[in-house]
Amino acid sequence: MMEYLTTRKDDLVGWVRKFSLFPYPFVTACCGMEFMSVSSTLYDTDRFGAALPRFTPRQSDLLMVVGTVSHKQAQVIKKIYDQMCEPKWVMAFGACATSGGFYRNYAVLQGVDKVIPVDIYVPGCPPRPETVIDAILMLQEKIANDHHPILPYEQQTPPRV
């Protein structure tokens, strides 16, 4: 009985969380143009409950890293990630955020996953809006199938690095 209740609770919480994604757009480069078209009415991400950007990390649960991240920016992005409340997810938007893209040099961080954990990678330079919507759907699927413990942070498993 208890087992059954916990599973249903995860389903319920996952369903609630997946449709109330509040993205924080961390826009640094040209991918931002494509981010704008994704958030335009034509593509209407509100259909997926992910359209309302919050420009403060405290109120958001999806960090979208949009564009090239340099080593100097990495400190900023780490701080923003740390300021976000649990539960939180990270999307690496575009080739640069995913892997550094074609910038293989002294200045550019070779993928944001070097400093923060990333849940979903969106390929493309820049990605087409359809790709981003697909990524949002995949992320929602991940959230829906996730385990959502209502526990103090220290006791949550698995611990997020």
Binding site: A74, R104, N105, Y106, A107, L109, V115, P117
Partner: peptide, 27 residues
Amino acid sequence: LYEGFVGHPLRKDYPMEQEQPIVPYRK
């Protein structure tokens, strides 16, 4: 650049793939 950066990146003998991260990498 930032404090602590060693070398001069636009000199042609600066290794192309040499990174000097400020934030320590995960894992």
